[in-house]
Design a protein around this nucleic acid. Structure first.
Lengths: 192, 192, 192, 192
DNA sequence: TATGAATGAGTCTTCATTCAT
DNA sequence: TATGAATGAAGACTCATTCAT
């Protein structure tokens, strides 16, 4: 999304750092995470980090990109399914499967968005783009279902997910996710 | 919830600090806010802050308490209304009225919850309590509407609010809140 | 030793503060003791302390004075005894009786002397004076025993006490004091 | 005793810091010494200190270690001498030679022990270990002299040193050390 | 005299970022 | 490329001392 792979050397440190950043930033939060934390998680010497990322913000951006890629992968997989209903329900299933992680650390995208919003840097745009991708995909599904209010429904669905992720996390109760997903499933069925 | 009001002298600095904390922490986020920021907002010399709050965490807690009190006030006002439907819709109206603020800084409770979750201190319990209050109130409304699944509905409603707040904030688009609130209104009507 | 009793009002706060200072400074050390600690121990509001003592140093000085007075009292009591040997041994007994306190916090005079020496203020002179008083008294006893080297013996005796206090304290072992006191007793007997 | 020498690179800053800490802490006392003082004495920028020592306490510990090493060196040198009497007297000579420094700042080990005792951290154990080393060595000498009460005599000797150091320091009179050392020499001779 | 409140200078500690090799 | 080391700008917190009443 930003700069593209400094070089093709197989060291893979850049990727390792991005992955480590995505993981650590999710579990610890941006403010609570130091560069050293990420470097350590990636097993890269601190000093070396700066060869790949000029600033901490760039690492955050790389983490966002990693999340974006994960999302694209997910969407790609979902798109294999035959009907939009199938795809949306599969999305719900994915959320439910991750409920334990969500209860512990919240939705990766959502928590990042929340944190980044309070900062002056332009990173909030990057995370917004990720969110927009998901939103657009959901909208597409509802449209294929013949709904004229596809956009509104998509927003409602993603909001429901973000919101229940927050509650699941706040109360450390993964079952909240399960229950809400079931409810959303019924809701989707009712829209056809 | 925690305090004990040092004294009843009219200086009101403690209250001023708590209010300033609530406001500044909401707009800047906890990590980005320095004690000096809060002190300045409250027009209190930095050193003096520590006479009222022993640590930054205590200030955060005071801010949470302030939010709790605001919430109690809101609930109190809503309870004046005749039917549960009226009350829930009035709640929605309140959210819509605040949409500009939400678009700029997110839901005060939600963003706090999100931030606090990543921290080791026990503050996440305090904010969870606030959330629980709102949840319980909503559940009560749905119950009065005769719904056996009141709890689930309450969770869905609050989740919807938290989620749309996040999106509203992420996309800086207050209209998202308006649209979703209208949708929720119809949803409430459909439950009767 | 310094200024003498602001007034004769019976409040006795000044004395209470001095006593509290002596006690708290002994157990916590000067640097680790805040004015608030002393005020609290004396059950005097912090702000009020300054009516009696203009600075923390003056409180320290008052504590030293308190120790000096205790010493004078002790010497007065010892002087009731018939022979210098009796008096010196009684002194030893006193040390042994205090061994538990010494093991915990060291000799009050010695630890104060040690701490004050590192400071720029003139308080080290005050504590030196206290030490000098004890030294002079011991010298007098040895002189009465007919020793020409009374001064040297006195220094040796007090040094032995200060040193064993330090070891007793460092190793938290009150028995060190007991053993050394017994040894000093034999030594005194051998000098006659 | 605790360290592990970050690396063997020749910068030697760690050692310089430890040495500076040992020296400055001895002359100024722990409480009166700021990290900046030590950094300045070692000619190291303040921020850089934390690359080597995570906290002020670790610097204090390093200083203690430095003293321990000095002591081990001293003991090693003494052990070259033929008889225990020679060794003990050489120890006394060392004390006398340092009398000026002692008069100014007290015994490094003793003053540290005194200060550390009043603190909650575990540093008092470290300094106690140093003291124990010296004590054990002295005991060994007396034992080699054939004394069954070697332990008691060792305690007496070290106590005498600590005590006379305190008096020497309190009265700023280096001659006290000289006189007492001479007396102890005679005492040692009398034990054979 | 009494006292809650106020003040600000000082200290430790953290960390992103840079640099020399 | 790689990396240990360096740097300095913050920020939280403490506390003696002062002040208004």
């Amino acid at each position: 999304m930003t700069d593209s792979k400094k070089s093709r050397r197989p060291s893979g440190k850049r990727e390792r750092l991005a992955a480590a950043a995505a993981q650590v930033l999710h579990t610890q939060g941006i403010a609570q995470t130091t560069l050293a934390d990420i470097a350590q998680a990636a097993e890269v010497p601190v000093g070396n980090v700066y060869y790949y990322f000029k600033t901490k913000n760039q690492l955050v951006e790389a983490a966002i990109d990693a999340h974006a890629q994960t999302l694209r992968g997910l969407i790609g997989a979902l798109d294999e399914l035959p009907t939009p209903q199938d795809r949306l329900k599969a999305l719900l299933n994915g959320w439910v499967e991750q409920r334990e992680l969500t209860a512990r650390y919240g939705c990766p995208t959502g928590t990042l968005a929340s944190e980044l919003d309070k900062r002056a840097d332009g990173l909030d745009q990057s995370i917004a783009a990720v969110m927009k991708t998901l939103l657009a995909w959901a909208e597409q599904q509802f449209r294929e279902m013949g709904r004229a209010d596809a956009r509104e429904l998509a927003v409602a669905l993603i909001a429901a997910y973000q919101g229940i992720s927050l509650l699941t996390n706040t109360f450390r109760d993964p079952e909240l996710m399960t229950t809400e997903a079931r409810r959303l499933e019924r809701w989707i069925d009712s829209l056809a």
